[in-house]
Design a protein around this nucleic acid. Structure first.
Lengths: 200, 200
DNA sequence: ATTATCTATAGATCTATAGATAATGC
DNA sequence: ATTATCTATAGATCTATAGATAATGC
């Protein structure tokens, strides 16, 4: 109900809010955040610019929600893995790496690419940064639980964590310059590489 | 000569054009390209907004020039290394990785971070992409010249090149989240990691 | 009556040009 | 006379609000 839209389109199945999020995801990742106007987002979602404000307070809210949606599933999986303390840490770390690469490269738009936006550093997105820091800490803990990692001094452990985490996030850049690469094999190869960096 | 500036400042030693480039480098990397106004760039360079147009045609020209200045030195060094075909390729690859990490993390602003800007994909910056592709190809050739690399099938060689190159560029992200890390040790550790990924 | 949408627009930018001005050089 | 700079501004945005409208539900 409510006034009909000016331009009717086939039903996407998504709620208007989700249509806005999907439109924002595509535009933010391809054109950038600042370069994307509220009009562009609204129109791609099938409504007029002003109608967008019925669902969200503005662009910021869209970016904040998209950002969190990229890390939250990773963190959930990472925590599951961390809890399984009877399986060897090596295999769990490998699983985490593979899954993260698949999550980063899997979606329709390069959602991980949102993390590259300079605006993301703003205080407004502290929530995202907190979740990301937790995810990184899970990497550190898994690394420390491996046989090779258990022997490391703290500073060396931190360094390896940064290198492994950097490799995984660097995947966003690789994916950006070659979006059509088959994901599964690439995710496994990256996980292999991560373990080699970790010293396993 | 010419009319004096409205606000006098201590001489930086740089030409006005270079002051504009330096200002743009800082603002583009921290706030992003689209979010940076011509006024912000000009004013940080010590002149009024309109005066900027006496030196450059607009923001695009600044970004194009900054981008090329980040890869050109890398490529020059990479080519030197490629030519030294009596020294083992393993050591040369390590040198290239180390030097690139130092170039990416060394400067005053996170200049490598420019590469993360979504706007960089535009056709306008084809020159930069060409130079970057050449640099990546040098990585591939060095890798192929190593003992481990010589045995690889083409697709496997390409994959390892992507992983190594991804690790190096991923360093931009690591550097962004921790800009104060001592660069030299980090560059060496990253080069070590790159060789491990390469299978050496 | 409720509500999802629309149209219209005020106010705040931002870019790029036009034309004035304040130095130096000849 | 030359030139690096300035001030002023036209034209083109873009955001967010105000208020109208066209559906459905009761």
């Amino acid at each position: 109900m409510g006034r009909p839209r000016a331009e009717r389109r086939p039903d996407s199945g998504l709620s208007p809010r989700d249509e806005l999020l999907a439109a924002a995801a595509e535009l933010f990742t391809t054109r950038g955040y600042a370069a994307t106007t509220t009009r562009a987002v609204a129109e791609r979602a099938g409504m007029r610019q002003a109608s967008m404000y019925h669902y969200v307070s503005g662009k910021e809210e869209l970016l904040a929600e998209l950002l969190e949606s990229t890390v939250t599933p990773s963190l959930a999986f990472a925590r599951e893995l961390l809890a399984e303390d009877m399986t060897p840490a090596e295999g769990r770390l490998w699983d985490l790496c593979r899954t993260d690469v698949e999550l980063l490269c899997g979606g329709p738009h390069n959602l991980g690419g949102l993390y590259l936006l300079p605006e993301v550093r703003a205080e407004r997105f502290a929530g995202f940064h907190a979740v990301r820091a937790e995810l990184k800490d899970t990497y550190r803990q898994l690394l420390a639980a491996t046989e090779a990692g258990g022997a490391l001094a703290k500073s060396e452990l931190d360094l390896r964590t940064d290198l492994v985490f950097g490799l995984i996030e660097g995947v966003i850049l690789v994916h950006r310059s070659d979006p059509d690469r088959p994901v599964t094999a690439f995710a496994e190869a990256t996980a292999d590489a991560a373990l080699r960096i970790a010293g396993i």
